[in-house]
Every structure is written in structure tokens, then in C-alpha cells.
Amino acid sequence: MAEGEPKEKTEDTKKVVHTYPLIRHSDMPEETKIESMELVVTACEKHSSNNEAAARMIKEEMDKKFGPPFHVVVGEGFGFEISYECSNLLYMFFGGNLAICIWKC
């Protein structure tokens, strides 16, 4: 990936945990994507133990920045099937165990 991600490697030979933000799927423009990703990182680091608060923060910021209505899901395990407005979807992993899905509809 192009971004210089912070990498954290545990020296354990078997288990290597990566925590950098990893974008799985996105059709956002590059700038928006980067901005959203940074927002997600900020929110998830701020509310590391409270996914709901993180999701709320992301949603509100996204609404403010790119116009409502955004929907955000932050969680460790879930499934989803969504309809979204094209070029407004971001599905990424962060922190090694969190999945974040942001879309506008």
C-alpha cells in the first residue's frame, strides 16, 4: 500500500499481529478515502473500548464533512448486505480485530 502505515510486530515468531488500517473495499475517491481512513483511525483510537461511541463519532464527522446521511458499523463480527450511493463506501479493518463499514444511503 502507498501509505506509510504504522506497523507493530510482536517478536513472537508464530503470531504476528498487524494493527495498521487496511482498506478492504472502497470506491471513494482517493482523497476522501484517505481522509475517511484517518478519521476512522482517530475515532477507533479515541474510543478503543467503545465501538458505539466510535461509530457515532465517525458518523457525525462524516455527515459534517461529506453531507448526511452516513451509516457506520464498527464491530468485531457482523455480516451485512447494504445498498449504498456509489462512491460512498468504505470497508476497512483496523487494529487487528475491528471491521469498519461506512456507507452513504
Binding site: I82, Y84, E85, G96, N97
Partner: peptide, 27 residues
Amino acid sequence: PPPMANFSANVLQWVIYDAYQEDFAAQ
């Protein structure tokens, strides 16, 4: 109407782990 699309995925811990492994290997 604005163009819409569908997207679906399942989030499981192993999915996340695998994704990270794959990405790291690619890197």
C-alpha cells in the same frame, strides 16, 4: 436517482486476520 450499488460482506475475526496476513505478505 443517485446511482446505488450493493455490497455485502461478513466480518469474522479470522477474516480480519487472514486479510492482514495476505496484505502483509503482499507488502
